[in-house]
Every structure is written in C-alpha cells, then in structure tokens.
Design a protein around this nucleic acid. Structure first.
Lengths: 177, 177
DNA sequence: GGCCTTGGTTCGGTCATTGAACCAAGTTTC
DNA sequence: GAAACTTGGTTCAATGACCGAACCAAGGCC
C-alpha cells in the first residue's frame, strides 16, 4: 500500500500481499476491473487518476500476473486489461473492504450484490453466500445492482454504464459518444 | 492505501474504506493489534516503521474509532492502543489478504489460524469457519499458531513472543529484557 | 545527580504522486 | 491530402509523504 517500497522485515503473508496491492489506487483499479472496465481510458475517466500513475499501476499489475494485457483489435492496435485467476482471487478482499466501508462509513447502499442465476433480490451474505440458495456464489455469477443513493446522472460514461445492473467481470459497454 | 489524500470522485464504500485504512503501514498496524500488540514501542520494533509515521497512524486510527487509546497505568503514565468494535470488524479484510498472499505468493505456511475452543488442529476455512464444528469462529476464539517456516530466533521481542500460540486480541506478553 | 525507559517531535533528504503539457500511431473528416 | 480526433501513453516541475537520525521530556531507578 502505500509506497513502492516493501515491508522488508515482515514474515507475513498479509505484508506480502500489501506489497503488491497496497499502493495507492491499486485496489481501485482492480475493483474497476471486476466492474468490467478494461481500457486505459475508461480507468482514467472513472477513477480520476493521474495518467502516469495509471500507466504505472497497470504495468505493475500485469507484471504481477493480476491483470493480463491482451490485444483485442489490430487496426488500430488496441489492448485491454483483463483480470487473471490470480486477480479474480482478490475478490474476497474487495468484498470485505466494501462491507466494512458500508457498515461503518456510509449510510445508504450505493450498490448491492446478488446471485444472478437464482432469481433472488436479496443481497449476498457476509461471506458471499446467496441467502436464497445457500451456495457461495462464484464471482462470475455475482450481479452488481446500483442502489438508489447513487448519482443518477454522472459525468463520465463509465459511471453511466454502471447505472444498469450487470454481472461482474463482463466487459463494460460504454455508450458511443 | 496509499496517501493521505482521498479518492474524491468515488461513490463507493470500497474507496471510503481505503481512504481510512489504505495508507502505507495502516493495515499492518491493525494486524499487529489483532496479534495482541498494544504499546507504541512494540509496534515500533515489530514493524520497523519510522517513529513519526507510527505516531501519525496511531493518532489517525484512534481518531477514526478503530483503535482506543487508554491509560493502563498512572505512574509513570502509560497508554495502550486497543482495537474497538469497528477495528475488530476489519478482521475479514486481513484474513482475505492473508489467504490471498499465502495462496499466491508464499509457499509454506508462516502462521495458521484455528478454532481455540474446539480442540481441532485444522485450519480455518476460507470464510473463517471451523472445519471441525462448522461455526464461523468469532475473532476472540481464533488461535494464532506459528508455522515451521517462521524464523525461530527473531531479533525483536515481539516476534519472539509470537512464536508461542496465542489467541487473537489477547495482550502480548513480551519477556522482560 | 546521572542514567534508563517510554513515547513521542523535529528536521533535512529522498522518493512517490500530481496535473498539465507533450507525443505518436492510426483513423476519420473536410 | 491535410487537419482533427481517438487512444494510450511519456515527460516534467512542484508538491507532499516517507525515511532515518537526532533530539526532547516525563517519570522511575541507582
């Protein structure tokens, strides 16, 4: 977290994890990747992150095997960043942070998560289980539903695209301007 | 994570949470608090953190209601920092980070967690449940057991005290020098 | 009185972050 | 064919966080 330096003396898998995902912005980039953001420019406008920092974080996450940079069209050449298995495995970290933030900091629900395959309207439980069918829902079956407290007319196209319910990991479709 | 600045444009409980616990060192301080560290000097020697940064983090965590600074002896006056309920609620975040770090970065188990009340030797499951009795174990019943990969003769007294199994949150007993 | 322990504060130097400007390849528009 | 636009960056000066070492202060111990 925090800086690029490591936590040298710590014999601890928490410290090792924080060396990789603990820098400023890094976990928000990963969160956006779960939300379906894949392109440099979409990360940029949605996060409000300095361009140089975004480029550095994408490169670091790719080097650590958390994102995969892949060519999705040849002419003009364009790349996208997609979560790898190692990246998807970070989901419990983000969910735990989001639950804590919601319970202790925000009053209203900004977004809720539910089981897409199941027909239920109920939110996932504290360790990611579906209250209707009882199973721990895999990330690709989690549906992200915007709550009423969200700004209904955001400035950037990524936030606008996120006003519709969507599954995690599915690529975001930003409206053409 | 990262810096003291906020993530201004983010309508997201994950971003709110990271504004508070996302700065460098902060989550390691909280981790040590779970391990039973309570005194300024113990945090200092165990983390290898600059003194000024430690003082700033302890003050910020206290101001956010994650730690409670309390007088534990009058003469000479001495204070200790103890996790509040809000702080204890961060446990799932740390466990998720530790699991991810262990699975993807470290080979051997540095420490394992198990259910103290239950007699089992088995490690807690991925959402904190005891494999023997099936319940989700409350933090105060989690036992921290050092693994074989840990350095058996560490330099600082806090690491030495952590070589014995202990329950989370129970105050650490550093041997008198 | 002098020294030790605990819990800090201060300070100069270094390193990361920031925001604005610039760059470049390829494509569309006039 | 040139100008403008899109996408995905890099460069740069200024700011601010972090670092390590030194200093400080209250209280107890010898």
């Amino acid at each position: 977290m925090a800086l690029g330096k490591d936590y040298a003396t710590q014999e601890c898998s928490i410290a090792r994890a924080l060396e990789i995902v603990g820098e400023r912005w890094t976990l928000l980039v990963v969160r956006d990747a779960f939300y379906g953001v894949r392109r440099y420019n979409d990360f940029l406008v949605h996060l409000g992150i300095p361009r140089a920092v975004l480029a550095a974080r994408l490169q670091a996450l790719t080097a650590e095997g958390i994102l995969d940079k892949r060519r999705y069209q040849e002419s003009p050449p364009r790349d996208e960043y997609v979560l790898t298995d190692r990246g998807v495995a970070l989901w419990p970290v983000l969910r735990a942070l989001g639950l804590w933030g919601r319970d202790y900091l925000d009053k209203p629900d900004l977004r809720i998560l539910r089981h897409a395959g199941c027909g239920t309207e109920e939110e996932l439980g504290s360790y990611g289980e579906c209250p209707a069918c009882g199973t721990v829902v895999p990330v690709s079956d989690v549906e992200l539903v915007p709550g009423p407290a969200l700004d209904q007319d955001p400035a950037d196209p990524v936030s606008r695209a996120l006003l519709k319910p969507k599954r995690l990991l599915q690529p975001l479709e930003t409206e053409p301007v």
